[in-house]
Computed example of a mutant assay.
Amino acid sequence: MISPDERFRQVYAANFEALLAYAIRRVEQHEDASDIVAETFLVAWRRGADLPPDDEATLWLYGVARRVLANHHRGGVRRERLGERLRQRITSLMSADPGHEVPQRLIVRAALARLPEIDREVLMLTAWEGLQPREVAEVLGLSAGTVRTRLSRARSRLRELVGDDPPDAGHVLDVLTATVPEEGR
């Protein structure tokens, strides 16, 4: 009787070249083919008890290689999508000058500091944390109606405090004073 290790060596020797050729024909980068074959034989090693006898082992290995290739291609698509998102993010970060908004932010922060604490908190929870009025109400222990009223008044007061004088302050202010979408009411 042949040992499992010897059986694996025989299957490997008999199928390595054919599986490598199979993988090379199915990947864009030839370097990936060796990874596909290595993963295929790793599965065969781990599942040695499932390895069918003789010629059936070759077909079984092709099936494993096919699934490994499918995983490889899916991973490539995910890597491409992630790479594209990262490239877009880097481009947007590099093109934005964070120093440009500093004066406007200081103006808005100073105006926020002049609001009553509850109004300031309602505005900040809405604009900076992205909470809807009903969520702000829960955080602050108020009714949703009270929060909507306070939010409307706080936005008006903030606009009065900032005014339209500072150049580009409107851009920063717009975020804080945007109207609440219908679904958030």
Score class of each variant (00 low, 15 high):
Arg85Pro: 00
Phe8Asn: 07
Ala144Phe: 00
Ala14Gly: 01
Thr149Trp: 02
Leu59Arg: 14
Gly145Ile: 07
Arg9His: 11
Arg114Thr: 08
Leu82Thr: 11
Met94Leu: 13
Asp97Cys: 04
Asp97Val: 11
Gly75Asn: 15
Gly141Arg: 05
Ala154Ser: 09
Glu121Ala: 12
Val43Ala: 12
Gln29Trp: 05
Glu121Tyr: 00
Arg46Cys: 06
Gln132Phe: 00
Glu6Asn: 06
Ala144Tyr: 00
Gly83Lys: 02
Arg26Cys: 04
Ser92Tyr: 03
Gln88Met: 10
Val43Gln: 12
Val175Ser: 04
Arg78Lys: 14
Leu115Phe: 06
Asn15Trp: 04
Ala65Tyr: 05
Arg66Thr: 14
Ile118Gln: 11
Asp168Leu: 12
Trp128Gly: 06
Glu84Arg: 14
Ser92Val: 09
Thr40Cys: 08
Val180Glu: 01
Leu161Thr: 08
Trp60His: 11
Glu121Trp: 00
Val43Cys: 05
Arg155Ala: 02
Arg157His: 12
Ala137Tyr: 03
Ile118Ser: 09
Arg159Lys: 13
Val175Phe: 04
Tyr62Asp: 01
Asp168Phe: 08
Thr58Tyr: 10
Glu129Pro: 00
His171Ser: 12
Val11Pro: 10
Pro52Tyr: 05
Arg78Val: 14
Glu31Lys: 08
Ala113Arg: 15
Ala127Met: 05
Ser156Asp: 10
Gly184Ser: 11
Pro167Asp: 07
Thr146His: 05
Gly170Ile: 06
Asp174Gln: 09
Pro133Ser: 06
His100Ala: 15
Val172Phe: 01
Leu161Phe: 08
Thr58Cys: 02
Asp55Tyr: 03
Leu161Met: 10
Glu28Pro: 01
Trp45Asn: 11
Ala70Arg: 15
Arg87Gly: 02
Asp32Pro: 02
Arg47Val: 01
Ser92Met: 10
Gly99Asp: 13
Pro52Gly: 09
Asn71Ser: 13
Val77Ile: 15
Ala144His: 10
